[in-house]
Write a protein that binds this DNA or RNA. Structure first.
Lengths: 240, 240
DNA sequence: GCCGATTTGTCCGTATGTATC
DNA sequence: CGATACATACGGACAAATCGG
């Protein structure tokens, strides 16, 4: 990314994460930072806004910008929050062995349309995958991709990263996603495909992903065994 | 709130929610909007940025700003996401009957300090509350408030909204919060206080809340019966 | 395929308001 | 009160993407 504000954001974030700007300390003032980065007031503020939104700093009017970032514990598989968009999926993919359970073409029925938001009759590629981590089947992913946007998904692609395929090979740009987290009782299929033991509830992330055009290109259900699930989030108060 | 960009954000958001700007349609161009709101390019862009961050719109370079907001179903108690900061707690409070199970003063032990992030020796007010909705005990809230920031919490206050008390009566301003969502097995206390039946897992929101100074003023665990829990979230891709 | 109009994206410089110390 | 620092807003400029002729 070439944007100035983004480079500044990343640079300051790096300094916070490596401890140059410690927890509960203050950043240099806007004036100093605009000098060191040789940028305008506006551009620096945009970078600071990103840091605030991501939970790294808390600007205090008339005083300074306080650092509130603390290293998160990484004992479980974290999704959301400070991590960037598909970083979590990436990390899971790296640590996990993926088994493709099913891969087929379907057409959106009225019921699918209602459940997913795809228009009725849309051609879809359906994938069911199991993620094994440390030999245990922990995550069941059920994806529906809009075939017109992401064509040519093979089992080969499904075993790796469909996102990487879409972005690198097809040039499709993923722009934003809406997620809902619920806790659901394990179904017969969950029990069959995952190593659940006596666990009968799963953490479920249901998400819709839109491309840069604002077109719905994917719906996913990611069903996690609860002892390996953690979702982190930072909420900034939108002043009232 | 008096900020121009905020007023514009709210006004456009309202028009999206009531259908004036329909799903998958385009907003008027920046030029038109700056004319109607009589504001600068920059100010309008800030409002549009908020709409994008909250998942209402998807700006498409060179084309326009597409509306991607869809009315969420309200079958369960939703927290997070498009809803503003403590709106969810507010709504729960209105619908729920709150029973205060415990209220006491404690001092942060090393263990509490490690678990919550409060400095060792900090004076805290501990509250345990059960939320009943439709006669069923569904949510168990365990709060730890920093007594120096929010003093004088009575059972009366605890039965209502501590946030309202802090903001309206004490003038404490809540600025941001970090949350983690996990799924945990029900403890003996959960079973005792909540109506769980044969349910043995709970959705747990663990959060830290910071004031406008960036000081940690509250830690909460909110333990929900899964069939009434839904957390919504919008993630905007931060271009790479 | 090129050009120009439209529209969003980024950045700058400046001015003013407001909170803290 | 004045100095410092963050918050908001304006107006102008140029870049980049899209679309139609």
């Amino acid at each position: 990314m070439k944007a100035r504000y983004d480079a500044i954001y990343r640079d300051i974030r790096e300094s916070i994460e490596n401890g140059t700007y410690p927890y509960q300390g203050f950043l240099p003032s806007e004036a100093e930072l605009t000098a060191t980065y040789d940028c305008s007031h506006n551009t620096l503020r945009r970078a600071l806004g990103l840091l605030r939104d991501q939970g790294y700093v808390q600007p205090v009017h008339g005083k300074g910008v306080r650092v509130i970032y603390q290293e998160p514990e990484r004992t479980t598989f974290t999704v959301g929050g400070i991590e960037s968009f598909h970083e979590a999926e990436e990390r899971i993919r790296l640590d996990a062995q993926t088994e493709v359970v099913a891969l087929e073409q379907v057409t959106a029925t009225p019921e699918i349309s209602f459940r997913t938001g795809f228009e009725e009759g849309t051609e879809l590629t359906s994938i069911v995958r199991v993620r094994r981590i440390g030999g245990e089947a922990l995550i069941l992913d059920v994806n529906l991709f809009r075939a017109a946007s992401i064509p040519g998904i093979t089992e080969e692609v499904a075993r790796g990263s469909v996102y990487e395929y879409a972005e690198k090979d097809l040039g499709v740009s993923i722009a934003m996603s809406k997620r809902a987290i619920t806790v659901e009782r394990a179904t017969a299929r969950d029990r069959e495909l995952l190593d659940l033991g006596d666990i009968d509830y799963l953490a479920v992330i249901t998400s819709q992903t839109f491309d840069a055009q604002g077109i719905l290109i994917e719906c996913t259900q990611s069903r996690h065994r609860p002892d390996h699930f953690c979702f982190r989030d930072t909420a900034v108060r939108h002043r009232v």
